[in-house]
């Protein structure tokens, strides 16, 4: 490829991959690649930035830490997990990508992700769109009224927020209440028809998780804790993650 040849020098002390292996159960099978190419066949990000999952894994295995912690490819990865799903050796490439993301200085990570995560941290909704708990309540109630009226068969339908003792706690991608509120309704209808006892939370309803995609563990933990604590305080038994 015109590039200078890579020089192998035996085992390097404590490479990036070794660190990841320590964290993962069974070392994430990171050593076990058969180079069959299934991961790269199935990956939607194959070929972007001249990278593919198999190459990424091999570079990590060879201790090419600088390359794998600097390739912007890790941000093209959608974390869809297809590579591990089709891998005959069940190699946890997604986690390797995740830790590679984490090795980037926060401020150098993609702007969109930083902004979305920061926004989620700024409000109790955990909404990356910045929708406040009040805005959310207003949209939900307004929409519910509209549908109850327009579709008499759903006149008893409910979309509760902070209902104490509900069986299920639901979160919600905040794109819908902000830009496409109608898209929330089908799920309400299903839950209503199935007679499910559920609730949204005024706090932590925002289900999108940009802090995770940003690989910012601390922020991710904060947003998730906000949501889980709300569910707990309402006495909900099951947390339904709709994302």
């Amino acid at each position: 490829m015109g590039e200078a040849a890579i020089k192998l020098g035996g085992k390097k002390e404590s490479t990036f991959m070794d660190k990841v292996k320590e964290i993962l159960p069974d070392g994430g099978n990171l050593n076990l690649c058969l180079t069959c190419g299934a991961c790269s066949s199935g990956c939607p990000a194959t070929g972007l930035e001249g990278m593919d999952p198999r190459k990424f894994l091999r570079m990590a295995a060879l201790g090419l830490d600088e390359e794998i912690t600097s390739t912007p490819w890790v941000w093209h990865c959608t974390m869809c997990q297809r590579c591990i799903y089709v891998c005959p050796m069940k190699i946890d490439i997604p986690r390797l990508v995740y830790y590679a993301r984490q090795s980037w200085p926060r401020e150098e990570r993609p702007k969109g992700l930083i902004n979305s995560c920061d926004m989620a941290l700024r409000n109790d909704s955990c909404s990356a769109m910045g929708a406040s708990p009040d805005d959310f309540s207003f949209v939900v109630e307004d929409l519910l009224d509209e549908y109850r009226e327009a579709q008499p068969e759903f006149k008893d339908m409910d979309a509760p927020i902070d209902k104490e003792g509900a069986e299920f706690f639901l979160n919600q991608n905040s794109r819908e209440p902000v830009t496409e509120p109608d898209e929330m309704v089908p799920l309400w209808k299903i839950l209503h028809s199935a007679g499910i006892n559920w609730t949204y939370g005024s706090k932590g309803w925002g289900g999108e998780n940009y802090c995770m995609f940003l690989a910012d563990d601390e922020a991710w933990k904060n947003t998730v804790a906000m949501s889980i604590n709300q569910a707990k305080s309402l006495g909900c038994k099951t947390y339904l993650n709709t994302e």
Partner: peptide, 11 residues
């Protein structure tokens, strides 16, 4: 020439 990383590797 390693077909996996599509680079030359020396050892």
């Amino acid at each position: 020439h390693d077909p996996v990383i599509r680079s030359d590797i020396e050892a």
